[in-house]
C-alpha cells in the first residue's frame, strides 16, 4: 500500500546518523553493504560487465568525496549517500503497484520486488538518488536498513545493526531510533547539530548527517615579513627579502 502510515509522536523511526567529521571515505560501508545484501533473501545485487571496461551495478550506498571551502580554508568532506528513510517519501506515494511501502512500526522504506513492475518512477521521485534499478530482474532496489539483520535474533545482540554501521572502521556511522529523543543517536544529533539533507523539498528524511567540525588552525603565517629597521643590516635584509620573494 503506497499510502503513508500515520506518523504519531513517539513512534519508532529507525535510521542512521553519519558523522561527516570522522568519515574517512574508505568505502568499507559500501563494500560491506554490497556483500551483505548480495546474499540477502531478495537475491543478488547485480553487477554488469564486472571484469570489462565499463563495470556497473547496483549499490545501496555510494561514497562521494568533496572539497569544501569556508573562509579561505579548504578540506575534504567524504559523504556516504544512501536511502534516508524519509517520513514523507514521494518514492512511496508515486508507486502505482504498492511495491514501495513505508513500514508503520519502524519507518523503514522498502520495495517488495515481487510486486514491482520496474516503471522506475520511484527513482525519479527521490531527490537523493537512493534507488537503483536492477537490470537483471527488472525491478527497483534500495537500502533496506538491513532489515534482515537488525531483527535477526540468531545474531548476538551487538551485531543487530546494519552492515554499513557494523563495518565502519572510523565509527562514523550510528544506527538507532531517531523517534526517541533519549536514544544515543538522537542525543548525538542534538549535541552535534545533526542536519537533514534538502529539508526545503519537504521529504523529512530520518537519517541525519553530523557536519564537519570547524577546522581552522590558529597559526602565524609561515612567511613573516622582513624586519624593518634602520641601518645597513636592515637594508641588506630588506633587499634579500625582496629578491627571494620575487
Amino acid at each position: 500500500m503506497t499510502m503513508l502510515p500515520r506518523s504519531t509522536p513517539g513512534s519508532r523511526k529507525l535510521g542512521l546518523v553519519i558523522d561527516l567529521d570522522t568519515c574517512v571515505g574508505c568505502h568499507a560501508c559500501a563494500v560491506n553493504c554490497k556483500e551483505w545484501n548480495t546474499g540477502g533473501e531478495k537475491g543478488v545485487l547485480p553487477d554488469y560487465d564486472k571484469y570489462g571496461g565499463q563495470p556497473d551495478g547496483v549499490w545501496f550506498n555510494r561514497i562521494h568525496s568533496y572539497e569544501t571551502t569556508e573562509s579561505g580554508c579548504s578540506r575534504t568532506v567524504n559523504f556516504p549517500r544512501s536511502c534516508l528513510h524519509c517520513e514523507n517519501p514521494l518514492c512511496v506515494t508515486v508507486c502505482p503497484t504498492g511495491a514501495s511501502y513505508k513500514r508503520a512500526d519502524d519507518g523503514i522504506v522498502l520495495v517488495d520486488t515481487d510486486l514491482c513492475i520496474g516503471c522506475k518512477l520511484c527513482s525519479w521521485a527521490c531527490p537523493y538518488g537512493a534507488r537503483e534499478f536492477d537490470e537483471d530482474e527488472g525491478v527497483m532496489r534500495k537500502c533496506t536498513l538491513c532489515v534482515d539483520r537488525i531483527y535477526d535474533e540468531s545474531l548476538p545482540e551487538a551485531e543487530r545493526e546494519p552492515a554499513c554501521v557494523a563495518t565502519c572502521p572510523a565509527r562514523a556511522r550510528h544506527f538507532g531510533d531517531l523517534g526517541d529523543p533519549e536514544s544515543e543517536v538522537s542525543k548525538l544529533v542534538a549535541e552535534r547539530g545533526g542536519r537533514e539533507l534538502l529539508g526545503e523539498l519537504g521529504y523529512r528524511p530520518t537519517n541525519r548527517y553530523l557536519p564537519p567540525r570547524r577546522a581552522t588552525i590558529a597559526a602565524a603565517p609561515l612567511e613573516a615579513p622582513a624586519q624593518t629597521g634602520r641601518g645597513i643590516g636592515a637594508a641588506l635584509l630588506g633587499l634579500l627579502d625582496r629578491a627571494l620573494s620575487r
Binding site: L20, G25, H27, A30, Q54, P55, D56, G57, V58, W59, R62, I63, H64, S65, Y66, E67, T68, T69, E70, T76, V77, F79, R81, K120, S123, W124, G129, E132, F133, R195, E196, L197, L198, E200, Y209, P211, P212
Partner: peptide, 27 residues
C-alpha cells in the same frame, strides 16, 4: 545543501564514488 552543509560553504566534487556511468547518471 545537498550534503547538509551551510550555504556559506562552497563544495565541489573531488572523487566520484565510481568511474563509469551508473543507473542514476544514465537516468
Amino acid at each position: 545543501a545537498a550534503i547538509g552543509l551551510p550555504e556559506s560553504i562552497e563544495a565541489r566534487p573531488l572523487d566520484s564514488p565510481h568511474f563509469t556511468e551508473n543507473y542514476i547518471l544514465r537516468e
